[in-house]
């Protein structure tokens, strides 16, 4: 228990990822759902950094930086879509977002 191994970081990462999944499943507010996705990306980054430390190799950290870049792009485009949708429909509830459903 007192020695911290990569398994500890993997358990933390899995717990954080599951919190993100639960947020996506349970909440109906699309902004909260986006934040849950950011939590999941963070869980992946924790894993990458933990393995980077275990193998004494910085490639994992480089990958984590790429993940952060993709997360920034995703947040910019996703929030733009939310704004455009809100301007048309006056809602952020995903149950009412069905204009693309056939």
């Amino acid at each position: 228990m007192l020695e911290i191994t990569p398994s500890h970081y993997m358990v933390l990462s899995a717990a954080l990822f599951m919190i993100g999944v639960i947020g996506v499943m349970v909440r109906r507010n699309i902004i909260i759902i986006f934040m849950s996705i950011e939590l999941m990306l963070n869980a992946v980054n924790v894993n990458l950094a933990a393995f980077s430390q275990q193998w004494q190799h910085v490639t994992g950290q480089v990958f984590a930086i790429f993940v952060i870049a993709v997360a920034a792009a995703e947040a910019a485009v996703g929030l733009g879509i939310i704004l455009a949708f809100y301007r048309n429909k006056e809602t952020v509830n995903i149950d009412e977002m069905n204009v693309m459903r056939w």
Binding site: M35, I65, I68, A71, A75, L79, I82
Partner: peptide
């Protein structure tokens, strides 16, 4: 974990950039 650069990027990009974007959208 000894990843200082990643920590700085996390604070700058996530806590500084992305979250401000979220706050703007929540207020809009």
């Amino acid at each position: 974990l000894g990843a200082e650069f990643l920590a700085v990027i996390q604070v700058l990009v996530y806590a500084g950039g992305i979250v401000v974007l979220y706050l703007f959208v929540v207020m809009l």
